[in-house]
Simulated scan of single mutants.
Amino acid sequence: MKNILVLCTGNSCRSQMAHGFLNQQLGDQAAIYSAGIETHGLNPGAVATMQRAGLDITSHTSNHVDEYAGIDWDFIITVCDHAYENCPFIPAPNAQRLHHNFYDPSKFEGSEKDTRAAFDKARDEIKAYVTDFASTHF
């Protein structure tokens, strides 16, 4: 079983969505963890957009990357530039490190309808990335 860490700034939105899709697509093939360089709690918009996609992430927690010290990572995936540029060193000599900067829908300001669309767009982009990752690496 492979260990995958998905890393974002606050572990509230994009990393949580990726975590949910990785769990869905990889099942027993990998242990999925998500963390942030800070912890901001679950973003309600992320929870809602994942529910619209048929995934429940309400049991996820917002974790700090230091909580996972000592895990032998196979993959470390950063999903935002801020985490990629500011993450503390993670000793994982065998880990494949991947990076993709996804738009942060939690920063969107607009109507409720437009905010929902922003979350759904980010969710769909993350799902496509995860689908490609799973088919390439598993």
Score class of each variant (00 low, 15 high):
83 A>I: 00
18 A>L: 08
31 A>E: 13
56 D>H: 10
67 E>S: 09
131 T>W: 06
126 I>H: 11
105 P>F: 07
26 L>I: 13
54 G>N: 09
53 A>N: 03
65 V>A: 01
27 G>K: 14
75 F>R: 04
53 A>Y: 12
113 K>G: 06
130 V>M: 13
123 R>C: 12
84 Y>N: 04
44 P>Y: 05
115 T>P: 05
46 A>Q: 11
90 I>E: 03
19 H>A: 11
112 E>D: 14
26 L>N: 13
97 R>F: 03
32 I>F: 08
20 G>E: 07
24 Q>N: 11
124 D>F: 09
79 V>W: 00
95 A>K: 10
69 A>F: 11
98 L>E: 02
27 G>F: 10
124 D>W: 06
40 H>T: 05
116 R>I: 13
59 S>F: 10
39 T>S: 09
46 A>V: 10
16 Q>E: 10
97 R>I: 08
18 A>K: 00
133 F>C: 07
84 Y>G: 00
66 D>I: 14
15 S>Y: 05
120 D>M: 14
58 T>F: 10
71 I>T: 15
130 V>C: 14
40 H>C: 10
70 G>D: 09
100 H>F: 12
80 C>Y: 01
79 V>H: 01
135 S>K: 11
23 N>P: 01
121 K>N: 14
136 T>H: 11
76 I>E: 01
72 D>S: 12
102 F>T: 04
103 Y>S: 08
123 R>W: 06
91 P>Y: 14
111 S>W: 04
37 I>C: 00
117 A>W: 13
105 P>I: 04
50 M>E: 08
71 I>N: 03
119 F>G: 09
16 Q>D: 12
14 R>Y: 08
79 V>R: 00
92 A>P: 02
118 A>E: 15
69 A>W: 07
41 G>A: 04
104 D>I: 01
79 V>P: 00
88 P>A: 06
134 A>L: 06
85 E>D: 15
106 S>K: 12
125 E>M: 13
25 Q>S: 03
58 T>K: 12
121 K>P: 02
116 R>E: 15
76 I>L: 07
91 P>T: 11
113 K>D: 13
48 A>F: 07
19 H>I: 01
117 A>E: 15
21 F>V: 04
131 T>F: 11
63 N>P: 01
99 H>P: 08
75 F>M: 05
30 A>F: 11
104 D>S: 07
71 I>A: 08
120 D>H: 03
116 R>Y: 08
49 T>M: 05
92 A>W: 06
25 Q>F: 15
91 P>G: 05
97 R>V: 03
64 H>V: 01
54 G>D: 12
33 Y>K: 06
134 A>S: 15
78 T>Y: 00
63 N>H: 12
104 D>T: 03
51 Q>H: 15
101 N>L: 06
82 H>F: 08
27 G>N: 06
38 E>I: 02
38 E>W: 07
98 L>G: 02
100 H>S: 10
22 L>Y: 11
118 A>S: 14
117 A>V: 02
122 A>D: 08
31 A>T: 13
113 K>R: 13
47 V>L: 15
37 I>N: 00
76 I>Y: 02
15 S>C: 05
54 G>H: 14
34 S>Y: 04
108 F>K: 02
88 P>G: 12
134 A>G: 05
101 N>C: 14
30 A>V: 10
22 L>P: 04
38 E>Y: 10
109 E>G: 06
103 Y>W: 01
80 C>T: 02
62 S>N: 03
48 A>M: 13
97 R>D: 00
77 I>N: 00
56 D>K: 06
